[in-house]
């Protein structure tokens, strides 16, 4: 395939009249500057905007005053959906010290095909579109975001940023490099492939429930 590489890059360089393979100054500048395009504006607060957009994509949320309320909020969701007290949670620091009731079965691991409910912690959220961003890593297995029927996601309110570009800035600042997968999740899974009728729960979660942690 070395030949194909040389042939393709050669044709491109010829068509573009580029003499050398060295990066043009404009290219280096562009990659370093990371300039933003036009930024959509809105009048509401970030929190209001995020919650309004979240509702628009058929996701639900609960508000938590502190981490002590996590068990109660998850319990309320399990009861409302009539689910057994089994959950698979991400091995995340915000969840490690939660005192789960003794009669719950809780496992902190990646998700498997039979898991009904997954609980993870978002890296951040994007107010513009009501999206959650999750980064694959030891504290956030990607399978949790996609395999269980019900996906619960803990989001500290301080982690809501205005736009996707702000999420990238946060990622560069805190992580330095891209994880294997950066998932921007906006609502539950959906399809319109049968007669353009929107149906939730195509292959991914049927429901998305955000636990918004104040402070």
């Amino acid at each position: 395939m070395v030949d194909a590489r040389a042939a393709i890059l050669g044709r491109l360089a010829k068509a573009l009249r580029h003499d050398t393979a060295a990066d043009a100054p404009a290219v280096v500048q562009r990659l370093n500057e990371k300039a933003r395009g036009p930024q959509p504006q809105w009048p509401e607060s970030m929190r209001e905007r995020f919650l309004a957009k979240l509702a628009k994509v058929s996701a639900t949320h609960a508000e938590l005053g502190s981490r002590a309320e996590i068990v109660q909020a998850v319990g309320a969701y399990l009861a409302a959906q009539n689910l057994p007290n089994h959950l698979t949670a991400a091995p995340h620091s915000l969840l490690n010290e939660v005192a789960w009731p003794n009669d719950w079965r809780l496992e902190q691991r990646r998700a498997r095909g039979e898991d009904r409910l997954g609980l993870a912690v978002a890296f951040c959220a994007i107010a513009e579109t009501g999206s959650l961003m999750l980064l694959a890593g030891p504290d956030s297995p990607t399978t949790l975001n996609f395999l269980p029927d019900d996906f619960l996601c803990l989001l500290p309110e301080s982690r809501i940023v205005p736009r996707m570009e702000d999420a990238w800035a946060l990622l560069r600042q805190e992580r330095g490099a891209m994880p294997r997968a950066a998932n921007i999740v906006t609502g539950p899974s959906r399809t319109a492939d049968v007669e353009q009728t929107i149906q939730l729960g195509a292959h991914g979660p049927r429901r998305l429930h955000v636990l918004l942690l104040r402070g």
């Binding site: 957009k53 994509v57 091995p91 691991r109 990646r110 998700a111 513009e128 579109t129 999206s131 694959a136 890593g137 030891p138 297995p141 990607t142 399978t143 490099a177 891209m178 994880p179 294997r180 997968a181 950066a182 998932n183 921007i184 999740v185 906006t186 609502g187 539950p188 899974s189 959906r190 991914g204």
Partner: peptide
């Protein structure tokens, strides 16, 4: 405004990743 899932893949699973 955005699809349900927009994903950026970068390389294979890392040494300490739990899946991928």
């Amino acid at each position: 405004e955005i699809t349900s899932y927009t994903t950026f893949f970068t390389g294979p699973r890392r040494a300490d990743d739990l899946d991928g």
